[in-house]
Nucleic acid binder design. Structure first.
Lengths: 110, 110
DNA sequence: TTTAATACATAAGATTCAGATGTATTCAGT
DNA sequence: ACTGAATACATCTGAATCTTATGTATTAAA
């Protein structure tokens, strides 16, 4: 587990990228996927995820479909057309940011 | 300029790394150095920097010396022995985090 | 001489996340 | 048949961190 500050600011990027790769996912599935893929290093809490999903939906980035699995509600999230662009934007921005940080953290004394 | 969320959580790491490379620096110098090294992509605001410096000092990570340049006060910050360890820790953690993110953002559909 | 740059700093507000709590269903073990 | 863990949604309080605005004062440049 990383110190919590680091994760900040990357949640949206992670969510958008996962949805770009997986067509549609539900909230709980996202938390588990991230946990699995990172070997428990990154754990998205539900208290952080759901507000983020809702705000992305409100912004027209995400579309939802509700389905019933037995009696249990399941809410699938997928990218809108806008969402696909946003996803690429965010991943590109983060990639750029990583390169900048890499440079910054490897500088040797002048 | 990156969307402000991305920078969050990296300020301490940046400051500690710069001080590890430069022995001692003053606040304004740090803002300018980061601006220069990143081609204006990362701009540390003073409202963010000074509280961070003060809290690192309170934690014994940083040591300060005040000097007068003419009549103007200049406050130099440098790493304590603890600070050197903390600096390495933070940089290592961020490096690890970047690798995790890189993996996460490049995954292809299963 | 007055504007921009240097240099410190604080304070109010916004954002964003973690942790706690809540509801309800379903599955596995006993 | 029962109990606890896992699944699945969600909200809310509080903590942490940053941005914007503001303030003081000195010095260099136009």
């Amino acid at each position: 587990m990383y110190s919590s500050e680091l994760i900040k600011g990357t949640l949206k990027t992670i969510v958008l990228k996962l949805l770009a790769e997986n067509k549609r996912m539900y909230g709980y599935e996202i938390t588990q996927k991230v946990k699995d893929l990172t070997g428990n290093k990154i754990q998205i809490t539900e208290g952080a995820l759901y507000p983020t999903l809702h705000s992305l939906e409100a912004d027209g980035i995400l579309i939802t479909e509700t389905e019933y699995i037995g009696k249990r509600v399941r809410k699938y999230y997928s990218l809108s057309k806008e969402g696909h662009n946003k996803s690429k934007e965010k991943v590109n921005e983060f990639t750029d940011f990583m390169n900048t940080m890499k440079f910054l953290l490897e500088i040797k004394p002048a």
